[in-house]
Computed example of a mutant assay.
Amino acid sequence: MKFLVTGAAGFIGFHTANRLCLAGHEVVGLDNLNDYYSVELKLARLERLNQHPGFSFVKLDLADRTGMEALFRDQRFERVIHLAAQAGVRYSLENPHAYADANLTGFVNVLEGCRHNGVQHLVYASSSSVYGMNSKVPFSTEDAVDNPVSLYAATKRANELMAHTYAHLYRIPTTGLRFFTVYGPWGRPDMAPFKFTKAILEGQPIDIYNNGDMSRDFTYIDDVVEGIVRIQDCPPPYPDEPEQARQGPPARLFNIGLGSPVRLLDFVGCIEAATGLQSIKQLKPMQPGDVLQTWADVSALAERTGFQPRTPLKEGVGHFVAWYRDFYGA
């Protein structure tokens, strides 16, 4: 099949595009290669992807309406996996317009491209951040998510509502995936696993927020990609019969997480074990936009696809640290 994978130079986008190419699909990767984090890392990922004969790259900004219209019109994608976004919670406090441009305007352009060009299924990245400070755990897609605590989370929730609307109005099958703290080789430098590993290997202190009283449902990248690949092959049907129509439009949401939250200090301990080094911890207060815990209920994903993330934390961290040392010569 012919896929568009947005954010192909990003962490999850790179792994997803690579997996699709290995399966023999034709993949067009889109990215604007912005400098939110290391462009060199993004280019290194693209260098790997360009080794696949079925991969081609387009440098384009999601907010470029004319460019996006031309891309969809010329390429006629069968399926779209939309993973590009302006990421980061704390960055949104200083750069709110970047989130409006990429996550709102950009998403409208993706939806319009799907609408006018017969895309069979749109799979897009949401985030566990939409659950905000919900106290009921584990987090279920049936839970109310009306109280985001960061602009990033608000844009992701807006994406879910926009996708639902397009599914209702234009019969576009859409599936949103709420990712839970994804980590692994080729990971993002702005995320805790990367920052902790870098600092520990360099003998630098690491910042532990809320005095370590936080937990995350750390999810290994291979499990996330497996979930994406399986769910893209399961587009929700449009209910044509009146009785079915009461079930709503072809818009679905799934959590992708390990389903086993880990305290932040325990995660640091896994990195220490993998590196053979002790960390220097600096305990700091809670940061604006952060949440206390994330914990995924993945029963719906398992029921729909027969798959549930399963990579143990110790194994996943070991793979990441090995990649980091190899890639950076650390």
Rank of each mutant, 00 (worst) to 15 (best):
K2E: 12
K2I: 06
A8L: 10
F14Q: 02
A17Y: 09
G24K: 06
G24N: 11
E26C: 04
V27D: 10
V27N: 02
L30G: 07
L30D: 06
D35N: 15
E40N: 13
L41E: 15
A44P: 01
L46G: 03
E47Q: 13
P53Y: 03
G54K: 00
S56E: 14
K59T: 13
L60M: 14
L62H: 04
A63H: 05
D64E: 08
G67I: 07
E69F: 06
E69L: 05
R73F: 12
Q75T: 08
Q75Y: 12
F77G: 08
F77L: 09
E78Y: 04
E78R: 13
E78L: 10
I81F: 04
Q86G: 00
Y91L: 08
H97K: 07
Y99W: 00
Y99Q: 00
D101Q: 14
A102M: 02
N103R: 05
N103F: 03
L104T: 11
T105A: 10
V108W: 15
V108G: 03
R115A: 06
H116T: 11
Q120L: 12
Y124N: 01
A125R: 08
A125I: 00
S126L: 02
S129N: 07
V130Q: 08
N134I: 04
K136F: 04
D143V: 10
D143G: 10
K156A: 10
R157E: 09
A158K: 01
A163K: 03
Y170V: 01
I172Y: 01
R178Q: 11
F179Q: 04
T181D: 14
V182E: 02
V182M: 06
P185Y: 06
M191N: 14
A192W: 02
E202F: 00
P205W: 11
N211C: 04
S215K: 13
Y220W: 13
D223W: 13
V225W: 09
E226G: 06
E226Q: 14
E226R: 08
E226L: 02
Q232A: 05
C234Q: 13
Y238G: 01
P239F: 05
D240V: 07
E243C: 01
P250V: 06
L253E: 09
F254Y: 15
I256W: 08
G257K: 13
L258Y: 13
L265D: 14
L265P: 05
D266R: 12
G269M: 04
G276Q: 08
L277A: 10
Q282P: 00
Q282S: 11
Q287F: 11
G289H: 02
L292N: 09
D297C: 10
A302I: 00
R304M: 15
R304P: 02
P309C: 06
R310T: 14
R310F: 13
T311R: 12
K314P: 00
F320R: 09
F320N: 05
Y324M: 03
F327D: 03
F327Q: 15
A330S: 14
